[in-house]
Design a protein around this nucleic acid. Structure first.
Lengths: 257, 257
DNA sequence: GGAATAGTGTCTCTAAGACAATATGGA
DNA sequence: TCCATATTGTCTTAGAGACACTATTCC
């Protein structure tokens, strides 16, 4: 009747188990197409994909060769899918400590011809400068960044089209309804830098208008004015802001926070 | 170089695979403590849990016996975790066609002493009247509903405390930031019925005040006035409303929808 | 001075919140 | 008639949006 006793009699072979357990990571970054100095940035939200090589690491023909895919790999002993995603991101791009979120499981039988392979999908927010984009690792032929407006026109491997569609929906929502935008910004930022991040996923006029947004940012409870000013976005020194650590829930049924 | 060729050479045994792949379902229901006729309902959000039996289906001592747990079971051949959750909910409660959402994966090695067992956590929204609460199925000794305010005081099996905490957070957010509340309501409902659902997860005064909420509901783009009236919540016939099918995203940076 | 970004001064208008009053119909 | 719920009237106030204007600094 003890737990140990129960454990001994438990037959673990009763049910089918997956043939593979993997983590995939949709790596998002924002590329600032700086128009020169003293300018607010022009930003574009991009997704990092790899092109699958013709041959795998052992020299055998690779499955879904030459198609574009979300990077990922097998979860290893003694780690969770989330830990695996962080490890793989670091192996792939040498960055760690970035924002990472699990957003879905893709486990339909038949999604991968090699067997019942389960994919845990995550998205990561990586600062542009830390993406060195080293190519040709393992079974990746190429690594590249694609604008979220173009990425769905590619020839995508497995069910990665569905994964990418969900990832874009998820990060769009999170950028607008949570404070994750802070992960695309330095600790202290100007109103126009935050505005540029948000404009990558919305064309809401209240966000797109400079006057409205520079007024509004002062009243948001989860953002406060910081000490200094900067001149990196304009000749006139510009007020810096920073995010306040807090949970934000804005009900759709009310006006207030 | 073809996919078939690649498939033949693929060695599926290279990585460790999970010992079990399961779906668990946090079944939420709202219990209306009707105060009599011509009254708006008093609602309480509840979670259905099972108490693990002393012996399992085969008569062996059960693991984590007598603790309370989220119902669930193993994903079977040719189904996804999501499909398994729907099947298990129907087996457990005989209801189908209800709202179900995957919200997390619990796969930390060691979370289950029987091996590397992966749990896909879902929440389901079930109308009160369809819960017959049949007891003592398989390895469940008892089935019961617990208010979300009390449930975390129970002795919970495995890592189900964490799962339940996450489920409560998730459904609270979804109720306020999406239109899932419709799944707790009949197709046509009064302002006070919707209000009662929302009051199970928030005490926002703009929602709690009758006058404010009855005015506000008329202006919400995702709700429209229906034809008829009802007297089930008051002696005065009351306007019925219904949800409009639409995506709702309310940015935290703006006032409008 | 010109150009470009940041920010303020006001005005209008909508809508939120508070309080009071009215509407309905069963007991 | 009384009561409980639903609903509207109306006032005050906050704040969104528009437009014009000012501020700063490099060229």
């Amino acid at each position: 009747m003890s737990n140990d006793e129960a454990l001994k009699k438990y037959d673990i072979k009763k049910y089918r188990t997956p043939d593979g357990y993997t983590s995939d990571i949709c790596v998002f970054t924002i590329v600032s197409e700086s128009d020169g100095e003293y300018k607010p940035p022009l930003m574009d939200l991009k997704l990092m994909l790899i092109q699958r090589a013709a041959l795998d690491a052992e020299g055998n023909p690779n499955i879904e060769a030459s198609k574009w895919a979300v990077p990922g790999g097998f979860v290893q002993d003694d780690e969770s899918a989330f830990e695996a995603a962080k490890r793989e991101l670091e192996e792939e791009t040498s960055v760690s400590g970035v924002h990472m979120k699990h957003f879905g499981v893709y486990d339909k039988p038949g999604r991968d011809p090699r067997g019942w392979i389960i994919s845990n999908a995550h998205y990561a927010i990586v600062p542009e400068h830390s993406l060195s984009l080293r190519k040709a690792q393992d079974d990746a032929a190429e690594v590249d960044l694609f604008s979220i407006n173009d990425v769905l026109n590619l020839d995508l491997a497995f069910d990665h089209r569905e994964i990418i569609e969900d990832a874009i929906k998820m990060i769009t929502n999170d950028l607008l309804q949570t404070t994750v935008a802070k992960n695309f910004l330095p600790e202290y930022f100007t109103y126009s830098e935050l505005q540029a991040v948000l404009k990558t996923v919305t064309d809401d006029p209240a966000i797109a208008s400079d006057q409205s947004f520079s007024r509004k940012i002062k009243t948001l409870p989860f953002i406060r004015e910081a000490e200094g000013k900067t001149s990196r976005t304009s000749k006139k020194p510009t007020q810096l802001y920073t995010f306040v650590e807090m949970d934000v829930v804005k009900p759709i049924y009310t006006a207030r926070y």
